[in-house]
Simulated assay, not measured.
Amino acid sequence: MLELDVLIYPDEVRVATPEDIREWELESASQLSIPITRLFVALYPYNPAAMSPNPDTAAEELPFVPGQIIKVVGDKDSDGFYHGESGGLSGYVPSNMVAEIPVDDEYLKYLLMQQGFLPVDHTGIPLSHSASIPDDVVVRRMVALFDYDPWESSPNIDSEDELGFRAGDIIYVFDDMDQDGFYYGDLHGRRGLVPSNFLEPLPWN
């Protein structure tokens, strides 16, 4: 059976030409706005019933715990809330209690969502108690994008000076990278060199 696309006007009906269809597709594509999906990690515990600044709409907000990964679509609203989903639930998320994980790779986003959590350390790093790190050093927080095993992947002979880690680990790095592209970092109290191309910055707030 032959199928034809037709255009219906108030005063006529005619068969659509290829040019008509192309023009319609371009117009439709320009009108479609595909929202960008972003990943956030919860920095603090949040119980809307007890903590929400909007008691009347607390039931529409998403509860979460530190380290929980939240998928957010769109920008925050005028009240400073995102709309997100995590663990099969969806609701509003206060923007001041989460931090964006700057990941552009869609497959990595999928893996992080499947994982569901990142290990979050809120105690910070006690630099004043470390003789090897000056008090005034710049400390940055980064998230590992991939697994890294120095024994298998390191380009350096002295790989025993490096840290191994897994995708999703939060690593605190000190100062700038060296000429070989490595940071000096801390992971759960272990310190060593970490390759910068395996990490992405993770904002503090």
Rank of each mutant, 00 (worst) to 15 (best):
5 D>W: 05
5 D>G: 05
5 D>M: 13
10 P>C: 08
11 D>N: 11
17 T>Y: 03
19 E>V: 10
28 S>R: 15
31 Q>E: 13
34 I>K: 05
36 I>M: 12
40 F>K: 08
41 V>T: 13
52 S>D: 00
55 P>V: 05
55 P>D: 03
57 T>G: 01
62 L>M: 04
63 P>I: 01
66 P>S: 03
68 Q>V: 02
68 Q>A: 04
72 V>N: 06
72 V>E: 07
72 V>S: 06
73 V>Q: 11
76 K>P: 13
78 S>P: 00
78 S>D: 14
78 S>W: 10
82 Y>I: 01
83 H>Y: 15
86 S>F: 02
87 G>M: 05
89 L>H: 06
94 P>N: 02
95 S>H: 10
97 M>F: 03
98 V>C: 00
105 D>A: 01
105 D>C: 01
105 D>W: 08
106 E>G: 00
111 L>H: 13
117 F>D: 00
121 D>M: 03
122 H>Q: 12
128 S>V: 12
128 S>H: 15
129 H>V: 10
130 S>A: 13
130 S>G: 14
137 V>K: 09
140 R>E: 14
142 M>Q: 12
143 V>H: 06
146 F>N: 01
152 E>S: 11
152 E>Y: 07
154 S>A: 09
156 N>E: 10
159 S>E: 09
162 E>I: 08
165 F>W: 04
166 R>P: 00
166 R>H: 13
170 I>K: 05
171 I>M: 08
172 Y>Q: 06
173 V>C: 12
175 D>W: 04
179 Q>E: 15
185 G>Y: 05
185 G>R: 02
189 G>R: 01
192 G>V: 03
194 V>S: 08
195 P>E: 09
195 P>G: 05
198 F>H: 11
201 P>E: 07
202 L>T: 00
203 P>I: 06
